[in-house]
Nucleic acid binder design. Structure first.
Lengths: 210, 210
DNA sequence: TCGCTTCCTGACCGTATGGTCAGGTTTGAC
DNA sequence: GTCAAACCTGACCATACGGTCAGGAAGCGA
């Protein structure tokens, strides 16, 4: 994607600082939402003066956009395994695995994305209408092919995709609720695995491919 | 719950205004989040001067809390049909119906709820730890009984509940995304029905009760 | 009609926010 | 070593926000 940057001190500084800011911003936006987040808080969390944030990202919205962009890329990437699969068990199974992993490892990013979409996608509407629309059409076609080949039950591919997104993202977006219902403790490794297996079991059996 | 209010002009005014404010607040909180919402905007949408909002609801947080309370009650109420059912097909089927209807009719409230939980439930943590925890334990026990009676496959009841919440709420919380992927048009009656049937088909077959 | 309560609201206030900027320091190509 | 470009930041600004309040209008029991 980006050509290998010359490894100068300057580039190192730039990369380091942008990374720190993005990480802090992701956390703050996830916790407070766009409106509730403040540049000052992000700056404090990144350990930089506020004015420095504006040096790298001209506006709050530009910073926010960069955060959303990051998680969107990760999100799309999760479908790689989906495509190469010979059938629904491998494809959808691997997709659930990947998306559950994202919910665990990038919970903040997932929340930012969810928040953005929930509020009408004010800054990423164009992505929804182009990249996501194409992506969805492609995967829906693949699922339809599996149905036509008798590899799974005839389920509306789009609603199936929504179910996959919903069930996996829920563990990130509603993680706090799940944690509360888990006695106030975050899910353990074992519990994450059990969650993933539960989702896979119900979905795969549900589409007649278990 | 509340004793029948005397039908005076005053009470009518109070009820009317509180209702207008709550309706406007629900919409604004859903669209902008707590931090992004402003009392001025809510006031404008309710057609009242801002100071009047503070007459009925002392602070922004009090107003917000009232909005969340409302949707939480609706949400809990949706499980009524669940309980009286003889088995998973009727119980879970009816629950999905009810929750999908809520996603459609109370999309704004659902978003406010989702937003609240996503941000760590700052104002309704107590509900999660008491009412919701009890509610969940009760339903999980019921599902476990169905499993023990051989009426459905052995699926972790809690993860099944999460799947039910996730799949149904998704149509409210991510309604904008779904709409965009639907060619920019809101789902029609027929499409809502198809969505509900898809969810029910996959879940019920997925728990071996279809 | 009187008098008390509830309802209403324009004007105001302190504060916090996103953003700016002038002036400084560091880096690195030459 | 020179110097321009990149980096850094304390101090500052205009604005918008949540909330207050004094004083008036409307409702209503007696």
């Amino acid at each position: 994607m980006s050509e290998p940057e010359r490894l100068s001190r300057r580039n190192a500084i730039r990369q380091e600082n942008e990374q720190r800011i993005l990480a802090a911003a992701e956390k703050v936006f996830a916790e407070a939402g766009f409106g509730g987040a403040t540049m000052q808080l992000i700056a404090d969390m990144a350990g930089l003066p506020k004015a420095n944030l504006h040096y790298y990202f001209p506006t709050k919205e530009a910073l926010y956009r960069a955060v959303v962009q990051t998680i969107f890329d990760i999100w799309l990437h999760a479908a790689d395994s989906f495509d190469k699969a010979p059938g629904p068990v491998e494809g959808i199974g691997a997709y659930i695995d990947a998306k559950m992993e994202i919910s665990r490892r990038h919970a903040d990013g997932s929340k930012v994305w969810a928040s953005e979409v929930m509020h009408g996608a004010p800054v990423i509407q164009d992505y929804l209408e182009t990249t996501l629309r194409d992506w969805t059409a492609g995967r829906a076609a693949l699922i339809q092919r599996w149905i036509d080949e008798g590899k799974m039950a005839p389920v509306d591919p789009r609603h199936l995709l929504y179910m996959l997104w919903a069930t996996t993202q829920h563990y990130a977006d509603f993680g706090h609720q799940i944690e509360t219902l888990n006695g106030g403790k975050a899910l353990s490794d074992k519990q994450w695995k059990a969650a993933t297996e539960s989702v896979k079991a119900v979905i795969l059996r549900g589409i007649g491919a278990g």
